[in-house]
């Protein structure tokens, strides 16, 4: 048993699950957007109309949170693989965490602040 406090869920299964579930959400979101772009005549009205729908705002927020979590698990793994000294590794991890947090909050502001 290796102890770790910096990973997302404290447990390997949890992180693994988060990575998989968030991947599904991101894949669905991407497919939906692609489909929308291909099947709809894109204009300011159709685009802002889509983002005006509450269900789509929720879907977008879900994708945003999923991206935050997915990126966190992934980058945490990369940093533990490649950055061996503790201090730089922790700093990079903290920076990644801060960026992810900013993106999520900023995203919420964009989605509901319009």
């Amino acid at each position: 048993m290796v102890s770790s406090v910096t990973n997302l869920g404290r447990s390997g299964v949890y992180d693994w699950m988060v990575q998989r579930v968030s991947a599904y959400v991101l894949a669905l979101y991407t497919i939906f957007l692609l489909g929308f772009v291909l099947t709809t005549d894109i204009s300011y009205d159709t685009w802002s109309g889509l983002f005006g729908e509450t269900w789509f705002r929720i879907f977008s927020l879900m994708a945003l949170v999923a991206m935050g979590a997915h990126a966190w698990v992934g980058l945490w793994t990369v940093t533990t693989d490649y950055i061996k000294p503790t201090a730089p590794r922790f700093l990079v991890q903290a920076a990644c965490g801060a960026v992810m947090f900013v993106y999520v909050v900023w995203g919420v502001q964009i989605l509901w602040g319009l």
């Binding site: 048993m1 290796v2 102890s3 770790s4 990973n7 447990s11 390997g12 299964v13 992180d15 693994w16 793994t77 533990t80």
Partner: peptide, 12 residues
């Protein structure tokens, strides 16, 4: 299983 349930032992 409890001994393996961390982010490194198996999931690396």
């Amino acid at each position: 299983l409890s001994n393996l349930d961390d982010p490194f032992s198996v999931f690396r």
